[in-house]
Design a protein around this nucleic acid. Structure first.
Lengths: 222, 222
DNA sequence: AGATTCTTTTTGACTCCTCAAAATACCCGG
DNA sequence: CCGGGTATTTTGAGGAGTCAAAAAGAATCT
């Protein structure tokens, strides 16, 4: 059985390869896991020996099918637990990430299945992140961000690519939750600023960086 | 913060001192924790250095107030989690112990409080074991067992002192759950046998050892 | 008391994961 | 092609927790 540490390494390799290159660098991994790069090199070699990752020395690392299976299972646990904490225990949106980070390593498959059923088999978590299926399918659709979408059109938030507590608390306070309706009223590349108008909270300004973490789609004519 | 290992040591010292002497032996602890005695000696000395236990070399170990506080908190988590797994997720009575064994070390106080509220602040878990309060009070009432109680009187099961999956499954199949009404119809010390009559499942024979693990009280005239 | 047995403690070693710091390889501008 | 700068790898060490096996203390049984 994989240790928590191993599960974390694999999970972060998956996460980092989702949002970017197929080959994940040691440095990126070290940053994500909050360890020094040397530690990552050592661990990655061990994971490669166990057949969980493929290591191309000096270039990066990639999940093997086995490793991907484990990573997806951990991710499924993480996201279902987050959903449970928010939907059932009514916990604060911004605080559940840390909790899930621990719980994901100790939830059994049996408990997971029952949690899944209790929640009605959701396919995204409270942040809009897709929940891998039991079979290990991960729907990863490509969306526009508030930094790149067309302006002056009705939009709906589908996902927030950010787990920092501060960011999420701020987002919540301004009604920037998955499902929220809004539109981009102005985008100033020079100032690095995006201005929005939400149905709930009126006009808000956001940095381009922050706007880039919020995924949207065109609002369906309802 | 105490590691899972430390929490487990403290929890088992508490459990073993509840049901017996105030001083817990290294051997008993080794058995409970499934490690060799030498390991226990080493760990216990470390715990003593941290002020969590009081170690009387060659005689045994006892919790300090600090250690007891930690142990009670772990026990509270364990029993609330078990209650959640059975009452909310409808898991099998006999299987929740293992799960809770893991979860007890990663549940935050915040989650615990919400779980407690969701469950309606129960004061015993599904096995009838008392749940320590948030303030660290543990109600430990003394009950008769099926091996020692008076015969031919209406009784009610209040607690099962056993967490082995097999025993619990057997108990469940014969309706021997906390709350169940029954009476002892015969007790044969020579044969080491106790015969019961339950309201639900009729007549059952039990070894004295098994009977001694089932706590009962006189049924209130209702 | 003397010998045997049981429990506890000590010792040395091992696994897993980590860091600090030195060594190495790679990339990029001139 | 050479010199920096950056990323990666190596090396040596340490903490936490464990085991196997030997040593030491207690207890028990003639």
């Amino acid at each position: 059985m994989a240790t928590s540490t191993v599960e974390n390494y694999l999970k972060h390799v998956l996460l980092l390869s989702e949002s970017g290159e197929t080959l994940v660098s040691m440095g990126a991994l070290a940053l994500a896991l909050d360890v020094v790069p040397g530690t990552v090199t050592t661990m990655v070699k061990a994971l490669a020996d166990e057949g969980l990752v493929e290591h191309q020395p000096r270039h990066g690392v990639r999940l093997t099918p086995d490793g991907r299976r484990v990573a997806l299972s951990v991710l499924r646990k993480h996201r279902l637990v987050e959903t449970f904490l928010v939907n059932v225990l009514k916990m604060d949106w911004s605080k559940v990430h840390e909790e899930a980070e621990q719980l994901e390593h100790v939830i059994s498959d049996e408990v997971l299945d029952r949690l899944d059923a209790l929640l009605g088999h959701p396919d995204t978590d409270p942040h809009g992140d897709p929940i891998p299926t039991r079979q290990g399918k991960l729907k990863s659709q490509v969306y526009a961000t508030l930094a790149t979408c067309v302006a002056e059109r009705p939009l709906r938030i589908v996902r927030i690519l950010e787990q920092s507590e501060d960011f999420l608390r701020y987002a919540e306070q301004n009604g920037l939750l998955p499902g929220a309706a809004l539109q981009v009223t102005d985008r100033n590349l020079m100032a690095g600023l995006v201005t929005l108008k939400t149905d709930a909270a009126g006009s808000i300004a956001l940095s381009l960086a922050a706007a880039g973490r919020i995924l949207v789609e065109a609002s369906k004519a309802s």
